[in-house]
C-alpha cells in the first residue's frame, strides 16, 4: 500500500507543477491583457489548427520531411564513415584532424554559406540539418568501433568474414550502444537546425509559420508553433528510446551482469 503511494506521488507532483504554471499564465493573460500574452484557449486553438487542415500540409509536414531526410542522412553517413574510421585505424590519421576541426564549427554558422551554395531550397535546409547532426553520430560510431572486443574480431577472422561483413556483423552491433547515445544528441541538434533553416527565405515549415505569425502579431499562433515543435521533439525522442530499448535489450542484460559480477 505504501509502496504504491510512493510510486504515484512523483506523478501527482508533476501534474500539480504543470497545472500551477498553466494557471499562473492564464491569470497573467486575463489580468494584464496584452498582445504578447495570449490566453490558453487561444494558444490551444492555434495548436489544434496546426494539426489538421491546410496548416498540417504547409507547416508540420514540410518541416518533418526535411527533418526526416536530413536526420536520416546524418545517421547513415555518420555510422558508415564512423565505423570505417574506427575499424580501419590506418585511415584515422588522415581524416581525424579535419573532423576535429569541423566539429568546432557551430552548425548555425554554416547557414549563410549553405544559402549561397544551394539557394533558398529544400536541399539547403536538408544539408544544414544533416551537417549539424552528423558529428555526434560520427564521433560516437568511431568511438564505439574502436572499443570492439579484439577477440570478437579474431573470431570473425577465423570464420573468414570479409571486411564489409566484419563491419556489419561485428563492429556495427558492438558499436550500437555508443551510436544510440550519439543519435539522441543528433536528434535534438537536428530539431534546432530544422527550425533555424526555416527562418531564412522559407515559404513553408514550422519555423516559417512562427516567424510569419510573429510579424503579424498573432502571438497565440507563435506559441502554438513553439509548442508543436516541443511535441514533435518529445514524440521523436520517445520513439527513439523505445527503439533503443528493443535493439539494445542485450546490452542492458549484459552490462547489468557485468556490474553485478
Amino acid at each position: 500500500m505504501t509502496a504504491k503511494r510512493n510510486h504515484i506521488a512523483p506523478f501527482v507532483w508533476q501534474i500539480c507543477t504543470i497545472a500551477a504554471l498553466l494557471a499562473l499564465w492564464q491569470w497573467a493573460a486575463l489580468n494584464h491583457p496584452a498582445p504578447h500574452l495570449p490566453t490558453l484557449q487561444n494558444i490551444a486553438a492555434g495548436y489544434l489548427r496546426l494539426w489538421h487542415g491546410d496548416l498540417l500540409f504547409t507547416a508540420i509536414i514540410p518541416s518533418m520531411s526535411r527533418l526526416a531526410v536530413g536526420f536520416f542522412i546524418a545517421v547513415a553517413v555518420g555510422c558508415v564513415l564512423g565505423l570505417m574510421l574506427g575499424y580501419l585505424r590506418e585511415l584515422d590519421p588522415w581524416i581525424r584532424p579535419v573532423l576535429e576541426y569541423l566539429r568546432f564549427i557551430p552548425a548555425v554558422a554554416i547557414l549563410p554559406a549553405a544559402l549561397l551554395l544551394f539557394g533558398p531550397t529544400d536541399t539547403m535546409r536538408v544539408f544544414v540539418i544533416a551537417f549539424g547532426s552528423v558529428f555526434p553520430v560520427l564521433l560516437a560510431a568511431i568511438d564505439g568501433a574502436r572499443r570492439v572486443e579484439p577477440l570478437l574480431l579474431e573470431v570473425a577472422r577465423v570464420e573468414r568474414l570479409t571486411i564489409p561483413e566484419r563491419l556489419f556483423r561485428v563492429v556495427l552491433p558492438a558499436a550500437m550502444p555508443s551510436i544510440f547515445a550519439g543519435v539522441r544528441i543528433a536528434l535534438s541538434i537536428a530539431l534546432v537546425m530544422m527550425v533555424i533553416s526555416e527562418l531564412i527565405a522559407a515559404d513553408n515549415g514550422l519555423g516559417f509559420y512562427i516567424l510569419r505569425n510573429q510579424r503579424l502579431f498573432q502571438t497565440a499562433n507563435v506559441y502554438a508553433g513553439v509548442l508543436t515543435i516541443g511535441t514533435i521533439g518529445l514524440v521523436l525522442t520517445l520513439a527513439l528510446l523505445a527503439l533503443e530499448k528493443r535493439v539494445l535489450a542485450w546490452h542492458r542484460g549484459w552490462r547489468g551482469l557485468a556490474n553485478a559480477g
Partner: peptide
C-alpha cells in the same frame, strides 16, 4: 581450422 579461445566469455557475441 576452428578455434576455441581461452577467454570464452569474451569470445561469444553478447548481442
Amino acid at each position: 581450422l576452428s578455434i576455441v579461445f581461452q577467454d570464452y566469455n569474451r569470445s561469444l557475441f553478447p548481442w
